[in-house]
Design a protein around this nucleic acid. Structure first.
Length: 332
DNA sequence: AACGTTCACAACCGCGTGCGT
DNA sequence: TACGCACGCGGTTGTGAACGT
């Protein structure tokens, strides 16, 4: 048994509203309000419209102070950030944007903002079809990117160096960041909580580390996860990781490079990065496959959400990382 | 100029929820 | 407590304009 219709479908007009209908509805509501009953309202006015249709027309178009036209950059940012936090709760997002309706925002997201966001993601600086010793570099979002956040872009590696710690860098990585300032700004070494001392006290072989980002890959709901998984490798203890340099920063778009990846490593990297919460595109990039070369609209909602939220996570990670460094300095 | 395709926006539809009886 | 009704929301569809061939 189906749901009872809210109105007599046969006797209601559908499709675009005429100026006359708009005027009738607007005039009535401005004089009398909705009366708390949308279903009865069209009958009172003499409109052959469904009550729901009247409500929608009023809320999305006729209501005073409705803002039409281009969305500002600030509005873009608010939408992106809220979408990352709460998903497609358009009415809640609309609540934060005076004059905008949920329908407006939804349409804007689906037709423009999603594309704009995805297009702002940078392509890899070098091809993934590379020789084993030619790293693939994924830079940070450009400074005009929607995702750009200056607090992310400050490199913890650089901060680390400037504070007198031994940098956790492979020769390859050092070369990369010194020869490509754009990439330098974008690299992110996740917080190394717990293993930090061990890493900075390692000898030069510490360059051969597999480093994952921090909380972005944390699946613990109470945030109490450890970060041991951040330094790991396939079947070897972290002290035995000598063969390759892998760096996994905390977000897809910051995925740095993989160097000398063989077939086993590809499998491992793909599996591991998925296990640690990276999207399939990150995993693909980790394994040296195409990452941002496809149609940006092919990204799923979840991947887009992750993409946005990961940047926030990066920011959190960075703060956490900097706090760790400060604490360490204070302790000494 | 005509036609086909794409895009943007408005409107519709169905479901979940809350409230009154 | 159960039920019915209206509202609000989010996904989907329809339509006209813009653009490309």
């Amino acid at each position: 048994m189906g749901r009872a219709p809210c109105c007599d479908k046969a006797n209601v007009k559908k499709g675009p509203w005429s100026p006359e209908e708009d005027a009738k509805l607007k005039e009535y509501i401005e004089k009398h309000g909705t009366g708390g009953n949308w279903i009865a309202l069209p009958h009172k006015i003499g409109l052959r419209r469904c009550g729901k249709s009247c409500r929608l027309r009023w809320l999305n178009y006729l209501r005073p102070n409705i803002k039409h036209g281009e969305f500002s950059d600030d509005e873009d940012r608010i939408i992106c950030s809220l979408f990352a936090s709460i998903g497609s709760r358009w009415s809640i997002i609309a609540g934060q944007l005076p004059g905008r309706t949920d329908n407006d925002i939804k349409n804007y997201w689906n037709t423009k903002l999603k594309k704009k966001l995805m297009m702002s993601m940078p392509p890899p600086l070098s091809s993934n079809h590379k020789s084993p010793h030619q790293p693939t570099i994924y830079p940070s979002p450009p400074h005009n990117s929607l995702l750009h956040n200056s607090s992310i872009i400050t490199s913890p590696v650089r901060a680390n160096c400037s504070r007198g710690f031994q940098p956790i860098l492979s020769p390859t990585f050092t070369t990369l960041i010194s020869s490509n300032s754009g990439a330098h700004d974008g690299f992110f070494v996740g917080p190394l909580h717990g293993d930090y001392d061990q890493i900075i006290n390692r000898d030069s072989k510490s360059s051969n580390l597999l480093i994952f980002g921090g909380e972005a890959s944390c699946s613990s709901s109470d945030g109490s996860c450890t970060t041991n998984h951040q330094i790991t490798t396939h079947g070897r203890s972290k002290d035995q990781v000598l063969d390759h340099d892998y760096m996994f920063p905390s977000g897809d778009q910051n995925l740095c490079f993989s160097n000398g990846v063989d077939e086993d490593d590809q499998k491992f990297l793909t599996t591991t990065s998925i296990d640690h919460g990276y999207s399939s595109s990150a995993a693909a990039a980790a394994a040296g496959n195409e990452c941002f070369g496809g149609n940006p609209l092919d990204y799923s909602i979840e991947e887009i959400k992750q993409l946005i939220s990961t940047n926030n996570m990066c920011s959190n990670n960075l703060n956490f990382f900097m706090d760790e460094i400060q604490t360490e300095e204070d302790r000494r």
